[in-house]
Design a protein around this nucleic acid. Structure first.
Length: 677
RNA sequence: GCCGACGUAGCUCAGCUGGUAGAGCACUUCACUCGUAAUGAAGGGGUCCGGGGUUCGAGUCCCCGCGUCGGCUCCA
């Protein structure tokens, strides 16, 4: 008896019946056999063991020690196999972590420990009175290293469910028992659960679907990174477990490279850059609400100008509305019912009032101020609307998660027939803005949540309209079921920041409910009253968050048109101070944001400080420039210049001598003006 | 909100097992008058997050609160 499998190059390989992945690797070559970690089985008949549902799914990773199904296509996975291989050893590392923790902290309860993007974690419940911190990592890592060094094989056994359950009950591993019970509950007649798989390495046995590398030795280099609380099964009503995060790589070099990248990402952190460049800061006196400095306001105003011009171009009309309202308004809108916990309330002369967390009810007031005809629609109102939301203290994060939020908000009131067109226009509008900054955007369609207002028929129509708009544009999108706003479904526009976190920028939300709640109407061509549809739309999301994202995206080196200071005049000595002042005045008169550094410091120091402040242009003026009425222009990021002393047109490497006219032309060619077209 | 860590000069941080607070940068002044990433010297500057407690004595130990950071939940 023999079986035949197909190798990645299409060649068949004949093996003895019952041959394993390891046998296949050995048949191909001794080197491959040594390097093999697992085997990818692409099709064929399952081996009947638990966990698999009869058929191997395409690309399923399996232990080397398991028999191969006849007729399968296989690929031996080694440390050259990329992400799949990395994720395999990170899962191995999670088991090694649990092994060490169980040894060091008897009585600990284990739960789950998967590999994740960039690493792995394991969640534990430590015995009462025991808590661990990063200070304990050294001891844990030392134990982990010992287990890796002794190359403990990962041994799989498939045992009857009842036997496994008994085992974990005996060990008081409650979470494992719960997992088994849930697996049983999820099984049905078509997919009965007879056995579960356990993996053992050294002293540690875990309920685990696998696969694993042949032994712990495959974990080449690892590091524990942080400890955090995490709810069991992500449910905030259940126990808070202790999660230990770590990462693992095949080589020490890879690990070091990764840690180096993490550090570089930290250098882009908008909170750090914001402080260093003096753009904004936070105070304990108003948590979650940024204070903007004059420099930061240049960025803010630049964006606002762009936003205003682009909105006007697209038929939006700007409005401005109050921030404090009678609580009755929030009852009518549904915010009181669904969103109260996130709102700020106060009393004004015994009258309950609330700060707006959204602008929609305010814009509705403007709509309602007059009778509306179908001829007016669509009506598009925009507002840089200041809203306040009580974000829980634990989620505040610099500018990216604040309580004081200035949305680039807009509401479109239109007929049902106009909805799709309007949504499409909103999306295109968003893409054109993002294109200015080179953002990669991901779209998400969020559908009806549990907590919602409005009938199912309304939701059907609204969800259908949004999906229709996405399909009409041929756009790719993910569906995020149940994540819509309480009044309607939405299309969210997300981007990923420099350290891999995903942030929502814009949102386009469809709303049939508010118009009903507020009894909005328009008179149709038939002279009858009709209900308009509302579209809520933000593209930057909020000015706060967007600026935070921009800072990280550009690592503080903002596009020239947003740079708080575009050029700084640096004096070589105080003998040219008068000339430098005239240069500054002339630059300012030309609408260039310029500053002057005429301190009694060396030119080297002034250049260094201007470089650290990431000022795009440094204009050095000394005796030569004063005589010739020029400036020596050095661009930010220029190579460290060598002395030259030639005194010719090129003052030194990386700098060129220009008239102010020529400098202005250079600056404008480099994008010094707001890109409104 | 939940778990954990952290909170010392404007910034970055040191301060051992409790004995009355320190460095670098920044700031001020003086000298230097300088050519593209740090000139030198001197000086000023601290409710050690806030409030309780233990102690002869608390930046240091304990409790409570606030804030920040990393996660979890949440982000309507």
């Amino acid at each position: 008896m023999s079986i035949t499998v197909t190798l990645p190059d299409g060649k068949p390989l004949e093996l003895a019946d019952g041959a394993t992945g390891a046998d296949a690797a050995a048949a191909i070559g001794a080197g491959l056999a040594r390097a093999a970690l697992a085997v990818q089985v692409s099709s064929g008949i399952g081996d009947g063991s638990a966990g698999a549902d009869g058929q191997a799914t395409p690309g399923e990773l399996r232990d080397l020690a398991r028999p191969l199904p006849d007729g399968a296509s296989i690929a031996i996975v080694t440390n050259k196999s990329g992400d799949a291989a990395l994720s395999l050893i990170r899962h191995d590392a999670a088991h090694v972590l649990a092994t060490a923790v169980l040894q060091l902290y008897p009585g600990v309860k284990i739960s789950i420990g998967p590999s994740i993007e960039n690493g792995f974690y394991y969640d534990f419940e430590f015995p009462d009175g025991v808590s661990i911190s990063e200070a304990d990592f050294a001891a844990i890592e030392e134990h982990m290293r010992a287990h890796i060094k002794s190359a403990e094989p990962f041994e799989r056994v498939d045992i009857p469910v009842a036997e496994a359950r008994e085992r974990f009950v005996a060990e008081a591993q409650d979470y494992k028992v719960e997992l088994i019970d849930d697996l049983v509950a999820a099984a049905d007649a078509n997919h009965p659960l007879d056995t579960v798989s356990l993996y053992t390495n050294g002293p540690f046995t875990d309920l685990c679907r696998g696969p694993h590398a042949p032994s712990t030795a495959s974990v080449g280099a690892f590091k524990l990174q942080s400890v955090a609380g995490a709810y069991w099964r992500g449910d905030s009503t259940r126990t808070m477990l202790t999660r230990i995060y770590g990462t693992a790589f095949f080589s020490k070099q890879d690990l070091e490279d990764y840690l180096e990248r993490l550090e570089q990402a930290l250098a882009r952190d908008h909170r750090k850059i914001g402080r260093e460049l003096g753009l904004f800061f936070f105070s304990e006196l108003s948590p979650g609400s940024p204070f903007w400095t004059p420099a930061g306001m240049v960025i803010w105003n630049g964006l606002t100008e762009l936003w205003r011009a682009e909105n006007r171009k697209r038929g939006y009309r700007e409005v401005s509305t109050p921030i404090l309202y009678d609580a009755e308004l929030w009852k009518q809108s549904g915010h009181w019912e669904k969103y109260r916990d996130n709102m700020y309330f106060t009393e004004v002369e015994e009258r309950p009032m609330g700060l707006k967390p959204m602008n929609c009810p305010a814009h509705i007031q403007i709509y309602k101020e007059q009778r509306r005809s179908y001829r007016e629609l669509p009506i598009r109102y925009s507002e840089a609307g200041l809203v306040h939301r009580h974000e829980p203290s634990g989620v505040l994060h610099g500018l990216l998660r604040v309580r004081h939020i200035t949305q680039d908000d807009a509401h479109i009131f239109c007929t049902e027939e106009q909805v799709q067109d309007e949504v499409v226009q909103c999306l295109r509008f968003g893409f054109s803005i993002y294109a200015l900054f080179g953002f990669q955007v991901r779209l998400e369609l969020s559908t009806r949540p549990d907590q919602r207002i409005g009938s199912d028929e309304l939701w059907d129509r609204a969800e259908g309209a949004l999906e229709g708009a996405l399909r009409a544009e041929g756009l790719q999108f993910d569906i995020n079921a149940g994540d819509g706003a309480f009044y309607g479904p939405k299309i969210d526009l997300h981007m990923t920041d420099s350290i891999g976190r995903s942030w929502q920028l814009g949102t386009v939300q469809l709303d049939y409910s508010m118009p009903e709640r507020f009894d909005l109407k328009y008179t149709g061509a038939d002279n009858a009253e009709h209900r308009p549809v509302m579209i809520h739309r933000a593209l930057l999301g909020s000015f706060e968050r967007f600026i935070g994202i921009l800072i990280e995206h550009y690592a503080g080196e903002l596009p020239l048109w947003l740079a708080p200071v575009q050029a700084i005049v640096l004096t070589v000595s105080d003998r040219v101070r008068a000339y430098a002042e005239s240069v500054l005045a002339e630059l300012t008169a030309r609408g260039i944001r310029a500053e002057l550094d005429d301190r009694d410091e060396s030119i080297g120091r002034k250049v260094r400080e201007a470089e650290l402040k990431k000022i795009p242009f440094m204009l050095v003026v000394g005796g030569r420039e004063a005589d010739e009425q020029t400036v020596s222009v050095r661009e930010h990021g220029a190579q460290r210049a060598a002395q030259d002393g030639s005194g010719s047109g090129q003052a030194s490497d990386g700098a060129q001598t220009l008239s102010l006219d020529a400098f202005q032309a250079l600056l404008e060619a480099a994008g010094g003006r707001i890109p409104v077209g």
